Computed example of a mutant assay.
Amino acid sequence: MVKPFKTVPVEVNTKKTPGYCVVCSRVATTHALFKGEGVVILQRYCDGCLPKADYKY
């Protein structure tokens, strides 16, 4: 299990549709950044799913 190294709030934009949580499909409130081998992976999470955010690769 890899925990995010940084989290960033999702910016609200009226010109784009909102992103959705990768776990439960609710509207995302946070971008979580994970370090992979030579890459940074961005995933979106809602407030409810963020505490258990992990990335398995």
Rank of each mutant, 00 (worst) to 15 (best):
residue 1 M to T: 12
residue 1 M to C: 15
residue 2 V to E: 13
residue 3 K to V: 14
residue 3 K to R: 14
residue 4 P to S: 08
residue 4 P to A: 07
residue 4 P to D: 01
residue 5 F to P: 13
residue 5 F to H: 12
residue 6 K to N: 14
residue 7 T to K: 14
residue 8 V to P: 11
residue 9 P to M: 03
residue 9 P to E: 01
residue 9 P to Y: 00
residue 11 E to W: 00
residue 11 E to G: 08
residue 11 E to P: 09
residue 11 E to Q: 05
residue 12 V to L: 12
residue 12 V to D: 08
residue 12 V to W: 00
residue 12 V to R: 10
residue 12 V to C: 11
residue 14 T to M: 09
residue 14 T to V: 11
residue 14 T to R: 07
residue 14 T to L: 09
residue 14 T to Y: 02
residue 14 T to Q: 08
residue 15 K to Q: 04
residue 15 K to D: 03
residue 15 K to G: 06
residue 15 K to W: 01
residue 15 K to C: 09
residue 16 K to C: 08
residue 16 K to P: 05
residue 17 T to A: 07
residue 17 T to N: 06
residue 17 T to V: 03
residue 17 T to Q: 03
residue 19 G to F: 00
residue 19 G to I: 00
residue 19 G to A: 02
residue 19 G to T: 00
residue 19 G to K: 00
residue 20 Y to L: 06
residue 20 Y to K: 04
residue 20 Y to P: 04
residue 20 Y to R: 06
residue 21 C to G: 05
residue 21 C to M: 08
residue 22 V to Q: 04
residue 22 V to H: 04
residue 23 V to M: 03
residue 24 C to H: 05
residue 25 S to C: 10
residue 25 S to W: 00
residue 26 R to W: 03
residue 26 R to P: 07
residue 26 R to I: 05
residue 26 R to F: 03
residue 26 R to M: 09
residue 26 R to L: 09
residue 26 R to A: 09
residue 27 V to H: 02
residue 27 V to R: 08
residue 27 V to D: 02
residue 28 A to L: 02
residue 28 A to M: 00
residue 29 T to R: 06
residue 29 T to Y: 00
residue 29 T to N: 03
residue 30 T to A: 06
residue 30 T to I: 07
residue 30 T to R: 05
residue 31 H to C: 13
residue 31 H to K: 13
residue 31 H to A: 15
residue 32 A to S: 10
residue 32 A to I: 06
residue 32 A to C: 08
residue 32 A to H: 01
residue 32 A to L: 05
residue 33 L to M: 12
residue 33 L to P: 10
residue 33 L to Q: 07
residue 33 L to N: 07
residue 33 L to V: 06
residue 34 F to S: 09
residue 34 F to L: 14
residue 35 K to V: 10
residue 36 G to P: 14
residue 36 G to I: 14
residue 36 G to K: 12
residue 37 E to A: 12
residue 37 E to R: 10
residue 38 G to P: 11
residue 38 G to Y: 04
residue 38 G to Q: 11
residue 38 G to T: 08
residue 38 G to S: 12
residue 38 G to M: 14
residue 38 G to E: 06
residue 39 V to K: 07
residue 39 V to A: 07
residue 41 I to Q: 08
residue 41 I to H: 04
residue 41 I to C: 10
residue 42 L to M: 12
residue 42 L to A: 14
residue 43 Q to C: 12
residue 43 Q to L: 09
residue 43 Q to Y: 02
residue 43 Q to V: 05
residue 43 Q to W: 01
residue 44 R to N: 03
residue 44 R to G: 03
residue 44 R to T: 03
residue 44 R to A: 03
residue 44 R to S: 05
residue 44 R to I: 02
residue 45 Y to M: 10
residue 45 Y to W: 07
residue 45 Y to I: 04
residue 46 C to V: 02
residue 46 C to R: 03
residue 46 C to F: 00
residue 47 D to P: 10
residue 47 D to F: 06
residue 48 G to S: 08
residue 48 G to A: 12
residue 48 G to M: 04
residue 49 C to L: 12
residue 49 C to Y: 02
residue 49 C to R: 04
residue 49 C to I: 09
residue 50 L to C: 15
residue 50 L to Y: 05
residue 51 P to T: 07
residue 51 P to S: 12
residue 51 P to E: 07
residue 52 K to Q: 15
residue 52 K to V: 13
residue 52 K to R: 15
residue 53 A to T: 07
residue 53 A to K: 06
residue 53 A to G: 10
residue 53 A to S: 12
residue 54 D to E: 15
residue 54 D to W: 10
residue 54 D to N: 15
residue 54 D to M: 15
residue 54 D to S: 15
residue 56 K to L: 14
residue 57 Y to P: 13
residue 57 Y to T: 11
